[in-house]
């Protein structure tokens, strides 16, 4: 598998750390795993750490937008961190840059969520 997925729960925030390539194939795997975590009902907020991503295409945008809709519809907040130039270009093109909160580091994202 070309995507490694790690999750951690801190307070009411779910942290998802992705490493590798996020495309149509791997987006389906990460979607299932993150949905399972969110279904537990323990966390309201979501931080996705993209610091170790080496590739992403529009399937990754679909995954991120899908989680954003779910989390915000339930009154939670979602943010991204570790966004590199390649990912930033995709977020700009798709308009996601306007709706998503982005932070340089995970600790900054978490402190904004109040769970530093």
């Amino acid at each position: 598998m070309s995507l490694h997925i790690a999750t951690e729960v801190r307070g009411d925030t779910l942290i998802v750390r992705l490493e590798g390539e996020l495309d149509h194939h791997t987006a389906e795997l990460v979607r299932q795993q993150v949905e399972t975590e969110l279904d537990k009902g323990v966390t309201d907020h979501l931080v996705i750490n993209l610091e170790r991503m080496s590739f992403m295409d529009s399937s990754g945008l679909g995954f991120i937008l899908g989680r954003y809709k779910r989390v915000t519809a339930a009154g939670g907040r979602m943010s991204l961190c570790g966004v590199n130039d390649q990912l930033m270009k995709l977020f700009e093109l798709s308009g996601l840059l306007k709706i998503l909160r982005m932070y340089q580091t995970e600790s900054q994202a978490l402190s904004e969520m109040g769970v530093a």
């Binding site: 979607r31 529009s58 945008l61």
Partner: peptide, 11 residues
């Protein structure tokens, strides 16, 4: 329904 972003051609 498959969470496609609709950005493929644009990209």
């Amino acid at each position: 329904e498959l969470e496609r972003s609709g950005m493929g051609f644009t990209i």
